Amino acid sequence: MSTQTLVNGDSLIRANYFNIAIDIFSVKERKKIMTYNFKNEGPNRIINFGGSGIVEMKENSFLIGSLLGEIYITYKDSILSKHNLSDLDIFKDREYRLYGINSTKPIKIDDDIFFYRVPEYLQQDKGYYSEKLLVKYNLKNKSLDELNVLYPKEYHSGLWSFAHIHPSFTKNSENKIIFSFPINSHLYEYDIKTDSMVTVDKCVKSKFDNFPLKPLKSTSVDFYEENKYIKGQIRYLSITYDKYKKLYYRMIALPVENDDDLISRDKDFLVSPIVLMVLDSDFNVLAEKKLKGGMFNYKDYFVNEEGFWLSKNNPKNPNFDEDKLSFSLFNLK
């Protein structure tokens, strides 16, 4: 398992889900080439690695932004430098939890790295909807700026499960950052030059979206009730840009289709049907394909020159093998 996968030519660079490690695989050779294991104790350690945002700086060197707001520069399995964002005077009283999974991978543009910042406040707090969700870290002067990306107005209508909170974003060939939020079908275009975000003026609603979305009555629900609620909702999961074909790939989770899946303790990514949507560079919907639940893992995917690869490492899949990585390649015909 992995929280985040980067692509560099033939290499897949994967953040290890279970260990403080980065694994590197060859697509052509279909095997793991190397693993960089980082220490979990002592001064030369990485704290809270799981969910860290990772950027490849150069070969064998990575920038890692952690959930505790620490920026690490590494080379192979060594830490070259560490910068705690709480040391910045203007941010001393704030939390900067930088969260990087496949749908929120940090983006590097020149000397700036754009991170998703997990909100500091609870949804019940007034400050929640004024939280800036995107921050920019400058490599040269080690500064941090909050950017003008907020939750859309639809979030103000109620309380939402944890699964509905995290946005997804991707950079296109014009260096604009395209955002998608789980609770509506809209796409949003953020311009780094003007620090502004506008709604894309196109209908990008899935043809399979026939489900009204309902907020939670309360966030004080147990695992079973929240899990059941999530599996009964539609969610616009992720947006990914294909720089080779100038396409966008979007994944959408649909409500489960039977009561057994709804009331089971299986998490949604194991059983929810998925829609894979393809859009052109102008956000016209070119194709949609519905994939039945229990076959794929929508959290694990990547794009290379061949197209969009989606993981089949789902324990519900009859061909699941925990000792192998297995992906299906999707191409627009």
Rank of each mutant, 00 (worst) to 15 (best):
I234V: 02
T74L: 02
P106N: 04
P273R: 08
I101P: 12
L85C: 04
E174L: 14
A253F: 12
D87P: 03
F38Y: 14
Y155R: 02
V256D: 01
D321H: 08
T194Y: 13
Y128A: 07
D323Y: 12
K217I: 12
S66D: 07
E257S: 12
S180Y: 03
L6F: 04
F114D: 03
K82H: 06
Y236W: 01
F320P: 04
G232W: 05
F211T: 15
G307S: 00
L150T: 09
N172I: 01
S143P: 10
D268K: 13
Y99N: 14
F115V: 02
K92G: 01
L286P: 05
I113F: 03
I22D: 00
R265K: 12
M197I: 15
I239P: 01
P212N: 10
S281N: 12
L286T: 02
G53W: 01
F179Q: 05
D300S: 14
N40T: 14
D222N: 14
Y236I: 01
D201H: 11
E56R: 15
I33C: 06
F208P: 00
I177V: 01
S78R: 15
M277L: 01
S238I: 04
T5R: 06
K193R: 13
L213E: 09
D89Y: 10
K136A: 05
I230E: 09
L187M: 02
P152R: 07
I47Q: 15
F115I: 00
N138F: 00
E131G: 09
D268A: 14
R45V: 07
K267D: 10
I239M: 11
V7P: 13
D93M: 08
G42N: 05
K292V: 15
T74R: 01
N319Q: 10
S81M: 09
K324W: 07
N84S: 13
L332F: 09
K205F: 05
H166A: 15
G51M: 09
L286W: 06
T3L: 11
K289R: 13
